[in-house]
Design a protein around this nucleic acid. Structure first.
Lengths: 329, 329
DNA sequence: CTGAAAGCGCTAACAA
DNA sequence: TTGTTAGCGCTTTCAG
């Protein structure tokens, strides 16, 4: 547990010189450098980040805010953020908010108390006012979800267009009775995905049936099952379902199977997110792929730029429709 | 961005007094306390953890080492660790090692460099020598997986017994031709689960068929599929499969379905871990439940004890066999 | 009950 | 090329 002083003494130089060697400055003669390196090795010295961080007024930690760690949707984004962060000497603190303001506040405190240098927020339910307030002082990026027009840079995909393409695909393979399984429209992405759904229907002259639009409280398997139950109970049952999340869609799949109907012959299903499990279901799930990993690296790079005081602009990434068994029996 | 000096000046007291108020010491008169609190509010002061951490030689961060963030197995353990940590004023840094020594080393460095106060390791493939070496100086707990006898405290379940019960269940419902889908036996849990499998067979006088023991390189869906392919190709096909992980079992399920056979009528399947998705498959999966959340809280509590310099003993928690559709048509 | 002052381990401006 | 020294923001003796 040696410190820089002891290394300096051991090497017979000053702490400044040791610090220079530590930080790879080339203003040190190779002789002294060797001496210092030997002393470091001899004493088994490891520089303390606590001292360095205080001195530099930085923590080299970035916060990732997600509503729920169990949602596989976030996995690849997180990996992207982490790898980019690591490559720039940052570490990530993964924070599950449960969309609970108290828990959010614990994590916001971390940046207020200088224990974190910035935040990548992926929580659509986060307290937007607090976030906006924080963003005035601290580096914050919104990822995947963004509360439009609150002036925080974001990275996302074009949800409206993605939704439009998914529904158009269903129409092209012959469906006209298409249900939408959506989130609460308090979320921007929910409004955008509904808009895309409507545009596709309208373009093909299909009237919007209000009964075909079902809202769920959560993007979970169980809520997908529940919603599908309602859809199956409809008088004029739709022949296709577009769910705004794979977890919902997988719940729907299960429910359809349980009712003795066949996917896709009786009802076709499209999900959204391309989580790993969407390829493990029976049948495999047609879904919209977001470039998760890239979203993560982009968000991290933007955040680090912001931390360093540089200007950053929002980014919209591409998406892709993955056609699999649930729409092509 | 006020600091403690400015608060002291504003309140007309010394920094020591401010610090006392901050830390809730009751050696401050209520008058001065009020003055200080007003100054804090007035200046919008937030104490910096960088300063405090350096002074206290602690980071209040604990590391969680997992091989792969995508494995749902770890989710509840992580939640348990996090909640316990939070309640004690610690934050968690989630570290995915990819079972890659270089990446492990990045994270080990965090504790060497005082950026983390301790480690909960859940990586069975972690470099045991390094871990052992680190454990001499730093607080380390092994969770769920442990490399026996290396002197690091651990929390886990009795894998041998759990495996024994799972296999016994299969025997009780009439199976005698039972395959074991196992991990590489370099992992202790793999050896223990095999031992439980053997004990159950032996107890019932069923001879061990070497062809029925299949090893997979990874605990993943894809590897479960592959392994199941091999099992299905066997001359004398087993009527039941016990997989040491739900992900393997779900892969097996998919493969059996694809081959036109029926679960459980043709082949019964048992998994291990009770991940969320084990209840979403068709049919739902019989599996062994580990008390994940409790494992997490226990590990965190043990680690914090260790950080504070207290003695800690290893813990073995209970498990439970969850019988569902994949073994009871 | 309160204040002065030392120091946690490090970096960087300035001087030599 | 190297050393001296002043902090970064906080906690905690020790004195009063």
């Amino acid at each position: 547990m040696a410190n820089i002083q002891q290394v300096a003494k051991q090497a017979g130089v000053s702490v400044a010189t040791v610090s220079r060697v530590l930080n790879g400055q080339n203003t040190v003669s190779s002789k002294t450098k060797t001496k210092v390196e030997e002393a470091i090795k001899f004493l088994n010295y490891e520089p303390s980040m606590l001292g360095r961080n205080l001195r530099n007024s930085e923590s080299r930690i970035i916060l990732i805010l997600i509503p729920n760690i169990s949602n596989p949707f976030y996995l690849d984004i997180i990996k992207g953020i982490e790898n980019m962060a690591l490559s720039q000497g940052y570490n990530i603190l993964l924070c599950e908010t449960d969309s609970n303001p108290d828990k959010e506040n614990i994590y916001f405190d971390l940046v207020r108390k200088k224990m974190a240098d910035g935040i990548v927020s992926m929580d659509p339910a986060v307290n937007v006012d607090t976030l906006k307030e924080l963003a005035r002082t601290y580096a914050i990026i919104q990822c995947s979800e963004y509360g439009g027009g609150i002036g925080i840079p974001y990275v996302t995909i074009d949800s409206e267009e993605a939704s439009y393409r998914a529904v158009k695909h269903l129409i092209q393979i012959g469906h006209t009775k298409i249900a939408l399984m959506n989130s609460d429209e308090k979320f921007l992405y929910a409004r955008e995905r509904k808009a895309g759904y409507q545009r596709a229907l309208k373009e093909q002259g299909i009237a919007l049936d209000k009964d075909y639009v079902i809202y769920t409280q959560e993007l979970s398997f169980a809520h997908g099952q529940q919603a599908m139950k309602k859809i199956l109970a409809l008088q004029d049952r739709p022949t296709a379902v577009f769910a705004v999340s794979d977890l919902l869609a997988i719940g729907a799949l299960k429910e359809i199977n349980a009712s003795g109907l066949h996917v896709p012959n009786d009802i076709a299903v499209v999900g959204f997110d391309k989580i790993d499990f969407s390829n493990m279901t029976n049948p495999t799930l047609t879904t919209v792929a977001q470039p998760m990993y890239k979203m993560g690296t982009t968000a991290a790079a933007m955040l680090i730029d912001k931390i360093k005081g540089r200007e950053v602009d929002s980014v919209i990434l591409d998406h892709e429709l993955i056609i699999r068994e649930s729409t092509s029996g």
